[in-house]
């Protein structure tokens, strides 16, 4: 008779015992686990809509230029669509990479350096992206032929 399926004990204490902060982390890991699932569902709609409108409609990738972006962001609907996409995707991706760093980087100094770099890049992407969406000026080009700019 075949041996019953067995699951071996996971590897423990790679690189020595884990350091835990003395204070409880509360429900952070549970909340981030839930966030990955909730944001994942929203991102499915936001990303597929983004890809469909930009790449499948009209002339696809050839239609994308400054005027195309100006046309989309003239509508608050697309501003908030892109804002939600930016924040959810960046936070979902940052938390995913945090998990991967926790899994594969066992030396405390490496972990700290990788996470510091990760959080710094997330901050740059979130601040830059948010500013770009809300400070966008379609008339930045003085010779613009866009109708919103000649009306002034």
């Amino acid at each position: 008779m075949a041996a019953p399926p067995s699951i071996e004990a996971p590897r423990t204490n790679i690189g020595g015992p884990r350091r835990r902060s003395p204070r409880s982390k509360g429900n952070f890991e549970l909340n981030s686990w839930l966030f990955m699932r909730g944001s994942g569902l929203l991102l499915l709609v936001l990303v597929l809509g983004h890809l469909f409108v930009n790449l499948m409609t009209g002339e696809g990738v050839h239609q994308i230029d400054f005027a195309f972006v100006a046309g989309k962001w003239a509508n608050p609907f697309w501003q908030f669509w892109d804002l939600a996409l930016l924040w959810l995707a960046e936070l979902h991706g940052t938390n995913g990479l945090r998990t991967i760093i926790n899994d594969y980087s066992s030396k405390p100094t490496n972990r700290f350096a990788l996470k510091a770099l990760l959080y710094f890049s997330a901050l740059v992407v979130l601040i830059l992206g948010t500013l770009v969406i809300f400070t966008f000026d379609p008339c930045i080009d003085p010779s613009s032929t866009l109708s919103v700019c000649s009306a002034k």
């Binding site: 400054f66 940052t94 990479l97 992407v125 830059l128 770009v132 966008f136 930045i140």
Partner: peptide, 19 residues
Amino acid sequence: IFFFLFAHVIDTAMVRVSP
């Protein structure tokens, strides 16, 4: 996808530089 998003936010930020 995470690394692409980083590049994509930066290329889109060029709309604040010039057309």
